[in-house]
Design a binder for these strands. Structure first.
Length: 413
DNA sequence: TCTGGGGTCCTAGGACCC
DNA sequence: TCTGGGGTCCTAGGACCC
């Protein structure tokens, strides 16, 4: 038996832990740049605010109905996620942290999975303040399905069997894990409308619609395990840092500043993972929604002569790539840096003739990191990152970092 | 006016090899 | 007149996930 533990309306629930007055009221959390609604309380869902809707489309609705609108606070959500994971890990010998708000737990051999689930749900709620739902099934896909059904009927914990045809028929085809909008359309075209339909369709038809991936999903619905548990997070193959700008950017100098910042951020990520990047890609794009404005998007890639995590080298190359794709006369909306083909720093092959002074450079980077860790990001940065940062994103109503910053600790009494 | 960010996997097609 | 067969590797694009 596999269990999927999923936090309810996760970002909203995190906010409510520290602002209990938001309980029972409509709340939404916006994506970066205050762009879209990415988390909604049940009350907000009832108002008809859909997942991913651009905020400007529902702004009036929110004001009319007294919806509390918050910018996203990823420091808080990341920390709350770690807490939930640490509680969950007490209850299962094998577990896979699947996303910031979901974990799979292996319940093979557990005598009464439903009882255990109820206990876990209660403990997580009491120890972290986060409400969760748990779905049970013989495969990952079925546990996801059970989880969805449990949220629908408010049970909190629910088990599904592949033989329970009635339950399978309740799940719309595009709500199945692994079936998105596109495949949903194509499946409906061949008469598959829900999970039962997918489970019972001829395999050859499923394969021609969605290849081996969809065939796997079909077998999982039938109770055959095709997707294994991954206890250890696999090392990343690429890492990306990108942001939309708070307002359109036209000047190369501003773009260079922004791209330098993304490059530094991406280089920090790979250093933390113990990886080195073999290549780098820089991309930029105008606002694709502004149909009446001239559009331009481009990207360019280059390979390093040896894998690296050196921020100065990465920034230098990022700027070279940016200049090669920048065109004057466009209002840019977004840019980003992707570090490609990451390899473990332990297994990396160096150049035959080592660059002189590279040890010093490494020591320098480490010292810089310590300075920033101790005194904050403004205590030391590369000149190319700029000081004004007029392009930086909007984040108008972020709550304090209650659990990760001394200045933001909540005060009791 | 305003529309997120960060990932993975699979497939088809082209370039190239002998 | 007749124009092979069997591979690998890379990339772009499309699908999905949260």
């Amino acid at each position: 038996m596999i269990a999927l533990a999923d936090c309810n309306n996760f970002y909203v629930s995190c906010e409510r832990v520290f602002r209990p007055s938001l309980e029972g009221r409509p709340v939404i959390v916006l994506s970066n740049n205050d762009g879209c609604a990415v988390a909604r309380s049940n009350e907000a869902k009832e108002l008809g605010i859909s997942m991913g809707v651009p905020y400007h489309q529902v702004k009036k609705l929110c004001e009319r109905n007294g919806v509390t609108v918050l910018s996203s606070n990823y420091e808080l959500y990341g920390d709350m996620s770690r807490r939930v994971v640490s509680v969950l890990s007490r209850f299962a010998s094998e577990m896979e942290v699947y996303s910031i708000d979901e974990s799979f737990l292996n319940f093979d051999g557990v005598e009464s999975p439903l009882d255990l689930s109820r206990r876990i749900r209660e403990t997580v709620g009491r120890w972290t303040g986060i409400p969760i739902s748990i779905g049970l099934g013989s495969t990952k896909t079925l546990s996801k399905l059970a989880n969805r059904l449990s949220k629908k009927d408010g049970a909190g914990c629910l088990e599904i069997r592949e033989t329970d045809l009635e339950a399978l028929a309740k799940v719309e085809v595009e709500d199945i894990w692994g079936v998105g909008r596109r495949l949903g359309v194509r499946l409906r075209r061949i008469g598959v409308r829900n999970a039962l339909g997918l489970a019972e369709a001829p395999t050859s038809a499923i394969r021609s619609v969605g290849g081996v991936t969809l065939e796997r999903t079909q077998r999982e619905l039938g109770g055959l395990r095709c997707i294994g548990m991954e206890e250890m997070p696999q090392p990343k193959k690429n890492t990306c840092s990108s942001r939309s700008f708070g307002k359109p950017v036209t000047e190369l100098e501003d773009l260079e500043e922004a791209v330098a910042n993304y490059a530094v951020k991406a280089s920090c990520k790979v250093r933390k993972e113990g990886s080195l990047a073999s290549g780098i890609q820089v991309f930029l794009t105008t606002n694709r929604f502004s149909e009446n404005l001239p559009q331009y998007a481009n990207s360019r890639t280059l390979a390093f002569d040896e894998p690296t995590d050196d921020p100065i080298r990465i920034v230098t190359n990022a700027k070279i790539l940016l200049r090669s794709i920048y065109r004057q006369g466009f209002a840019y909306k977004k840019a980003g840096v992707i570090l490609l083909d990451l390899v473990s720093s332990k297994r990396s092959q160096g150049l035959l003739f080592e660059e002189h002074g590279s040890e010093n450079r490494k020591r320098f980077v480490r010292s810089m990191e310590q300075v920033v860790a101790t005194y904050g990001p403004n205590a030391g940065f590369i000149g190319a990152q700029g000081i004004n940062r007029s392009w930086s994103m909007k984040r108008e109503s972020r709550t304090p970092r209650y659990t990760t910053s001394w200045e933001d600790l909540p005060v009791v009494g």
